[in-house]
Write a protein that binds this DNA or RNA. Structure first.
Lengths: 199, 199
DNA sequence: CGAATTGCGAAACTGGAGTTGCGCTATTCA
DNA sequence: TGAATAGCGCAACTCCAGTTTCGCAATTCG
């Protein structure tokens, strides 16, 4: 039952993640220093590395816990459900966008996380799987709306969802344009209203 | 006319960019080492840093020159023009996706470039401006198609283009799904066919 | 109890990005 | 020709992420 040797100090995980989150949001990815996290947590670097083998792993863990659960509602109104879901994604993106004190469209943290997922095969597998699970729910939502006649019968769900989610990421990472509630509604209208079955 | 002091060796730029491109595509962003580039180019590090103040700047310059000119055609067939343009974007993304020897959806280079643009204000300004110019052409293309009646009169061009380009980036960076010709066509169909004016 | 196992802290170390100082070289301008 | 300017190579340096070593502490198993 209990593992063999000396048990880990469970308070360390919590404290480190809290401190790392503060540093990441305040100073951005580069400003997140392992040495400083260790010092502020009153812990040796080796203790950190035992839990998170690289800074990338730590950062991913921090962001994972920052993200709201992004639950998908299913009210039977596909437009409202999509707006709701995309707004949660947008909220997460905007939170990271604000990281790093310099104003202007930073978005660096999102890019760093993408890079981190590419640098470490385990992170990549994990995050891709998480996205796959999340997206499967969204695809099921669209599919259900299609089956109950709210959407066109010949609708291709996969590119539709890619377009919706992708537009948000594209604006945050590439063009730097704002992603607020008004845009999300405009986006869903643009993608969806013309997919609604004609009455 | 001529600048004041000793002129730069113009051969250096060309040689360094070529070597850096080879390293970047072969070993990925992390594997691109300034020291190694300098050594292979037979040049001192200071010479590199005089031209590109950071590794990020060098990498951005390398990628910029790798990218095809991504010219936008205007044949009067909006679907064909969009497929053509998106295919060029996809080709650039797939080239970077292959960077780094490890197989599997790497895409790290794209993320690193996004992060680089966020780390350095000058890179960010430059790339955002380039994207803005490029996208302005695409938006004008869509607008023209709308005005000549090929697309719905009340079409909202901006989110439409965000969706198209965004879907490509989303797949490359986030889900790791393939972005080939078949997908681009499917994507454009998904986004566009239902925007075509009814005949 | 004692042996094995694992966590922890401290410190020294590696490697790569980026900087600095210096002596030298190639060019322009007066 | 000579002064000013700017590129170049070389080498030493700082900084930080990540690794390694070692001695000690806490726990389980026999």
């Amino acid at each position: 039952m209990a593992p063999r040797g000396r048990p880990r100090d469970t308070q360390v995980d919590e404290r480190v993640l809290r401190i790392a989150a503060a540093l990441l949001l305040e100073r951005g990815y580069t400003g997140l220093s392992i040495d400083e996290v260790a010092e502020q947590a009153g812990v040796a670097k080796t203790t950190l590395y035992r839990r998170w083998p690289t800074k990338d792993h730590l950062a991913v863990a921090v962001v994972a816990r920052l993200q709201a659960d992004d639950e998908i509602t299913n009210t039977g109104d596909i437009r409202a459900d999509l707006v709701n879901y995309l707004e949660k994604i947008a909220a997460g993106l905007n939170r990271m966008r604000a990281a790093g004190h310099r104003e202007g469209p930073s978005a660096g943290t999102v890019g760093e996380l993408v890079a981190a997922a590419a640098r470490h095969e385990d992170i990549g597998r994990l995050t891709r799987q998480q996205y796959a699970e999340r997206n499967a729910l969204a695809l099921a939502l669209i599919e259900a709306a299609r089956l109950r006649g709210e959407l066109r019968a010949d609708l291709d769900a996969e590119p539709l969802f890619d377009q919706l989610a992708g537009a948000l990421y594209y604006r945050v990472m590439i063009t730097g344009a704002p992603v607020d509630r008004a845009y999300v509604e405009r986006l869903v209208s643009s993608a969806l209203e013309r997919n609604l079955t004609c009455h």
